[in-house]
């Protein structure tokens, strides 16, 4: 019985999402991000996927999370792990009308 309890606890840990980072995808299409705002948990990953037939960039110069993913063409994606809670503005440097916010809880 003791081993059974351990097995159940281990299964719950392995098959639950608790403690695991989630992955999200944000598209870049028609010179806009697919969402204007996204709420995620600390440690989650966002894949930014370029769906336009030209290059885009993704960057943030926020105090808590600074990154520059460079430029990448259609079909490619680049990822960022958000480890600090807060509201992170994210933009495309090439096309500054492309703006969104990542709310990290």
């Amino acid at each position: 019985m003791k081993y059974m309890n351990i097995l159940i606890a281990l299964s719950l840990f392995l098959f639950s999402n608790t403690g695991f980072a989630e992955e999200h995808t944000v598209g870049q299409k028609n010179k806009a991000f697919s969402v204007k705002q996204i709420k995620i948990k600390k440690g989650d990953v966002i894949h930014f996927e370029n769906q336009d037939p030209f290059f885009h960039n993704v960057y943030s110069l926020s105090d808590s999370t600074t990154f520059d993913l460079g430029s990448f063409p259609k079909g490619e994606s680049k990822s960022v792990t958000f480890n600090t809670p807060g509201t992170i503005p994210v933009e495309c440097a090439i096309h500054p009308n492309m703006y969104m916010e990542v709310i990290v809880e």
Binding site: N57, L61, D68, G70, S71, A93, I94
Partner: peptide
């Protein structure tokens, strides 16, 4: 150019 306003690599001389 724009790089002075936003120091992102792709903006050098843009």
């Amino acid at each position: 150019g724009r790089y002075v306003q936003k120091p992102i690599r792709v903006l050098k001389g843009a």
